[in-house]
Design a protein around this nucleic acid. Structure first.
Lengths: 206, 206
DNA sequence: GGAATTATCCGTATTTATACTGAGTTTAAT
DNA sequence: ATTAAACTCAGTATAAATACGGATAATTCC
C-alpha cells in the first residue's frame, strides 16, 4: 500500500480526492489536512510515502511546503496538485524538489498513475505541464532581472506613492528612486508607469 | 432521491464530489460534465433537480449557464460551486438566478445541506458569501460610474499610450483625454496613474 | 583577487501628468 | 420637453516623471 497524504485548503476537493483514492487497492490515504502547518504535525505521528500538495493556501503555500518537507522528511516524495497552469509555478515546483506536477483538470486515472510512478522512483509531468515550462523561461528572463530593491520600489509605485514619498519611506534620496524607476522601465521594456504596472501585474511581480 | 448534476472542468474535483454525494442516500448524481454545452445536451436525456455549476470554465462559464438554464429548464435549480470568493461573482450569480452559492473550501456536510435546502425550495448562501456581497456593493458603485468612453481610455492608458497618442487614436483633442483621465482618477478615488492601474486591475476593469 | 552587479547618489533639461476652473454639444432618460 | 449625464474642448499653473550623462561604495560571483 502506498501511503498518501492530501493537503489542500478546499475541503470539498480534499474529501473528494480522498474518496477517489480510497477506491484503489494500492493506495491508502493516511491523512488529509487543510494547511501545511497541520501536515507537518501529522507527519510526526504517521508515516507517509507521498504528499499531494495544493499551491494556493492561506499561510504556507505548496511551493514553500516542498522546501520544508525536503529538509524535515527527505524520504517523502511530493506531487503538486493544483489548478495553476502557469509555467512559473511548474519551474518553481521542480526547483523546490517536486516529483510531480498535476493539474486539477486531469482525470482520476492520471492521478493514480502519477502516484504509482512517483512511488516507483520516477517523476511525473504530463505534456500540458511541459508546455507551460517553455513560456516560463521567457517570463523568468524578465522577472529575474528585477532586483530586490527594485521590486520594493515597484510595489510602492503600484500603490500610488510618488517618487518623493517612496524616497522618504525608504530613507534615500528622490534621485535614487528615480534611477530605480528608470532601470525598472528599461528592464521590463516599457515606456511609462501605466504600462509598467500592467506588465508587472501580468508577470506576477506585485 | 434528489437528482443532481455536476458541471466543472476539473475532472478530479468533479469525480471527487460525485463520490462524496453518492454516499448520501437522498442524493443521486445523475451525470457529470466538463462543460456547459455538454450539460445542456445531457439535460434532454435525463431529468435533473439540481445543477452544481463551477464558474471558471473554458467556453460558457457558470454565470452564463445560469441564464441559459433558467430559460431552457426553468424547473431546475442551480447552485454555484466555485473557488471564487469575490463578491462580484456572488452578486452576478444571484442576478442570474442561482439558488445557492458555495465555496469549494466548504465541507461535504455543507454541500449536502445546501442541496437539500435548495431542493426544498429555500435558497442557500452561507455567512462567508454574504460578507462578500457587502464588498461587492462598493466595487459596483465604483465600476459602474466609469463610462464606456472612459473605459476605452483606461484600457489605452494601461497599454502605455500617452495622452497625446490616445487622443490621436480616438480622433479627439489632447484636452479631452486629459479630462477623461482626470475624471477616471476622481471616480476611482486614486491619486495617479500607477495607483489607477493597480485599482483598475483589482476591479477587473482591464 | 578581480569582474560584474547592485544600490546608492547627483545635475540639467524636457516631456507628461495633474489641478483647478469653465463651458458647449450630444445623448439618454423621464 | 426638461433634466441629467456623458463627451468634448480650453487656459493656466504646478508637480511629477523621464531622458540624458556621470560617479562611488558594497556585494556577489567566478
Amino acid at each position: 500500500m502506498i501511503k498518501v497524504s492530501i493537503t489542500d485548503d478546499h475541503d470539498l476537493f480534499r474529501s473528494g480526492i480522498a474518496m477517489l483514492l480510497e477506491k484503489s487497492n494500492t493506495i491508502e490515504v493516511v491523512h488529509q489536512t487543510a494547511s501545511v502547518e497541520e501536515l507537518l504535525n501529522k507527519l510526526d505521528e504517521s508515516e507517509v510515502d507521498i504528499c499531494l500538495l495544493d499551491i494556493s493556501m492561506n499561510e504556507t503555500n505548496g511551493l514553500e511546503a516542498l522546501l520544508l518537507l525536503r529538509k524535515s522528511h527527505p524520504s517523502i516524495r511530493s506531487i503538486v496538485l493544483t489548478m495553476h497552469n502557469e509555467g512559473q509555478y511548474v519551474v518553481q515546483a521542480i526547483r523546490n524538489g517536486a516529483y510531480g506536477y498535476l493539474l486539477k483538470d486531469c482525470g482520476p486515472e492520471e492521478l493514480t498513475e502519477a502516484i504509482e510512478q512517483v512511488f516507483n522512483g520516477k517523476k511525473y509531468f504530463n505534456k500540458d505541464v511541459s508546455h507551460l515550462m517553455i513560456e516560463a523561461v521567457n517570463i523568468e528572463s524578465n522577472t529575474q532581472k528585477i532586483s530586490k530593491r527594485e521590486k520594493e520600489v515597484l510595489k510602492l509605485v503600484a500603490q500610488g506613492l510618488t517618487t518623493k514619498e517612496i524616497a522618504d519611506q525608504l530613507f534615500v534620496s528622490k534621485r535614487t528612486i528615480e534611477t530605480h524607476r528608470s532601470n525598472i522601465l528599461k528592464k521590463l521594456d516599457v515606456q511609462n508607469t501605466a504600462e509598467l504596472i500592467t506588465k508587472a501585474t501580468q508577470l506576477g511581480l506585485l
